[in-house]
Design a protein around this nucleic acid. Structure first.
Lengths: 215, 215
DNA sequence: TAGATTGTTAATCGATTAACAATC
DNA sequence: TAGATTGTTAATCGATTAACAATC
């Protein structure tokens, strides 16, 4: 089986995740059809953008009706591997690492956390939900033996690159970086960043601009 | 005092947060100067982009030397209100809400969490760090009396819009949305999203594409 | 001085929007 | 049928990159 769409632009991919979430909700509420206009209105986009985006998929809408929610859901799920089980490890058992390990949303979406690690001896051995915090030295064997796909970096910025290097050397396939720093990997290992503080700063900037207008 | 730069594009703003973090690190390591090339190499950009971005700031570099780290840090801090204290409340005392309330990085960057709320009676009254979980009914008075700037939404998607409406009605200035859904607000109240699951899905897609190449 | 790096202009590239024929 | 909505093309818009004169 080959994918009909060899390369979907990243800007489109990011919106496709929104469609996936929204269509999942529509389906659970029993909606059979959805139009590009409805999707656009609910997600703050234009209907033109939605149609343009969906045209990248191996899936067609119907004139005068829109898109079948079940078909759209299926094809979007496939694009994002939501029909696959992904194995993850979390490195860093601080507040963020703990929250991720306990967050049920991940399990529900097919992302399974198989291990959590820390370098602090006082934390090693403690339990977080059903998981036991392990020594970071055990990362390589865990990644290799359990066919781990994704490594989550939830350590301070100063340790992030070292952890990434270790993950890469151990055969990780992709990295989710929650540390406030840029990480370098070989091209074969994609990295995505979740930058919470940066997002807050972006918000602070936006708020300041509003204020300035009012002055 | 007026800002010389009336409007910096969002794409630039997002990179400016990266420069801010990196320059902060450089300064703490005692570096006095940084060039556009050095910034670019460390953050995965081109030097052209860096110079273009920094030209939006009320700050000039020096030929043959680059940019003074202390000046660059000062002007970037100002753009993102890092020199201001921001007051926040967190709504939702689940794993994510707890993690945010305990995360020290926020305090350090000037984002102070002044309250945490939940609608679950069993959680109300419990402590998270120095904060006590309060009933969501107390959100409006808290926002008003404590001059809260930012509301963090850490509730399930189904409750997110309702919480946002309440925050807006109570005079919040901006919203950080951690829920997996699109939120609508009046234009005067900016919203930024932290979409962790969507980011993971983006990563899953990227990994799948690599795999396909190898096949 | 010679040479490295900025700031800026112009060129390229990509993303979004508008428009409309095709269609059910 | 009439009319709503898709899929797609072309136009617009914005972002990135290349190039280079100015400069210290």
């Amino acid at each position: 089986m080959t994918d009909a769409q060899p390369c979907i632009p990243l800007s489109v991919i990011r919106r496709l995740t929104k469609y996936l979430t929204h269509v999942q909700g529509l389906r659970s509420r029993g909606a059979e059809w959805v139009s590009s206009r409805e999707l656009a209105d609910n997600l703050g986009l234009t209907s033109s953008t939605v149609r343009q985006d969906l045209s990248h998929l191996d899936f067609c809408g119907t004139s005068r009706r829109g898109y079948k929610t079940c078909g759209l859901y299926a094809v979007l799920s496939h694009v994002f591997g939501a029909d696959i089980a992904w194995n993850m490890v979390v490195v860093g058992a601080g507040n963020l690492g703990r929250a991720l390990a306990l967050h049920e949303e991940f399990q529900r979406r097919g992302f399974h956390i198989c291990g959590i690690f820390d370098s602090d001896d006082r934390k090693i051995g403690r339990k977080i939900g059903r998981l036991t915090i392990q020594n970071v030295r055990r990362i390589p064997t865990t990644i290799r033996n359990n066919r781990i796909d994704v490594g989550v970096i939830a350590v301070p910025a100063s340790a992030a690159q070292r952890v990434a290097d270790l993950m890469v050397a151990s055969g990780i396939r992709g990295i989710l970086n929650m540390a406030q720093t840029h990480i370098v990997t070989p091209k074969r290992v994609p990295v995505v960043d979740v930058r919470i503080v940066a997002t807050l700063q972006e918000l602070a900037h936006a708020i300041s601009r509003i204020k300035n207008k009012a002055d």
